[in-house]
């Protein structure tokens, strides 16, 4: 497989099948995605459609059933520190201080650097995410938001080829979420990292991404539609929300999630091992998503007022 040199990540006919009691469940089928170097791509879709599955396959923590994943032109084989990962829960080692958690990775990647240099790298990233005064605190002494900051610092400190984020702000309150989105955006633009982020927050996706990849519902989920987000960078939240395209894009995404996510672009396989969820449940899901988003906007404008 030949890839164009400026594609950092390429997935080709990526498929994941879990063997279950009811027979093989095809979660993701023929998932095709190309991400350019330095690009920020969000993966959006209904809960359970297979976003995390795709991301964990890219991370190397989940085996690929068929198809291939190419990072910087080379096919991936297992996990490695060339991909910085931030999950919904930061999975810090609770017996180590924030600094030691970051150092654990830095020591692995920069093993040729001196002890002092490695410490400086770790301290630098912790400072950037705003934890300069909590270097020696254990995760148990930090708030959720601070722990996630450590997680972000740890991912960036590895100096990875690519960042993989799976709903990194999903468990945070909206105020902290906004702060951390900014932290992430600053770090990302400073380090020019290629990033793939899973989210189901439409506003978050719009604020951060260059492109938004909408996934169809599972089973046999695949890329439904790709949305270019061309707000100028560097971005700030206020300018993005006031951009004339903002509500059009937002409406488009919501419409996709509400109406088109369950329509497969190619013909649906009548032999699919799993039934679509019952209509009622799906409607509930959608309205829940919608309410969440509306709530999000309200909170966002409340916060903007607060800042102004």
């Amino acid at each position: 497989m030949s890839t164009l040199p400026d594609y950092q990540l390429v997935t080709s006919q990526l498929t994941k099948i879990y063997p279950t009691a009811k027979g093989p469940a095809v979660i993701v089928k023929d998932f095709e995605l190309k991400i350019r170097k330095g690009e920020f791509v969000s993966l959006i879709g209904h809960s359970g459609c297979g976003k995390s599955t795709v991301l964990s396959m890219v991370a190397g923590l989940n085996d690929v059933t068929s198809g291939g994943i190419f990072l910087g032109g080379k096919e991936l084989d297992g996990p490695g520190p060339d991909r910085g990962i931030v999950f919904q829960s930061p999975s810090l080692l609770p017996w180590m201080s924030a600094l030691d958690n970051v150092l654990l990775g830095v020591n692995q990647v920069f093993y040729t650097a001196s002890r002092e240099e490695r410490r400086q790298i770790a301290e630098y990233y912790l400072n950037v995410v705003g934890l300069g005064s909590s270097l020696n605190k254990k995760p148990g002494e930090l708030s959720q938001g601070m722990r996630q900051r450590v997680g972000i610092a740890r991912a960036f400190a590895l100096s990875p080829k690519m960042l993989l984020l799976d709903e990194p702000f999903g468990m945070l309150d909206s105020l902290t979420r906004f702060e951390l989105q900014q932290v992430l955006l600053d770090l990302w633009s400073k380090d020019q990292k290629t990033a793939l982020m899973v989210t189901h927050d439409v506003d978050e996706a719009l604020f951060l991404s260059d492109r938004i990849v909408c996934m169809t519902n599972g089973p046999e989920a695949e890329v439904g539609e790709i949305l270019e987000v061309e707000f100028p960078r560097p971005r700030n939240r206020e300018a993005v929300m006031e951009h004339p395209d903002y509500y059009r894009l937002r409406e488009h995404l919501i419409t996709f999630l509400e109406e088109r996510a369950h329509i497969r672009t190619p013909k649906p396989d009548p032999e699919a091992p799993r039934d679509d969820p019952p209509a009622l449940e799906e409607e509930q899901n959608i309205s829940a998503v919608r309410q969440g988003m509306i709530g999000g906007i309200d909170q966002a404008s409340a916060m903007l007022n607060h800042i102004n």
């Binding site: 996990p79 490695g80 999975s91 080692l93 692995q108 590895l158």
Partner: peptide, 26 residues
């Protein structure tokens, strides 16, 4: 915890480090 083991996997810790830095403390 699987999350801790994933950390070890992602960072490619060697066997010794995995045992003494992750598994035993956990």
């Amino acid at each position: 915890d699987k999350d801790f083991l994933n950390v070890a996997k992602v960072l490619k810790l060697n066997w010794f480090k995995k045992i003494f830095k992750v598994v035993l403390p956990a």
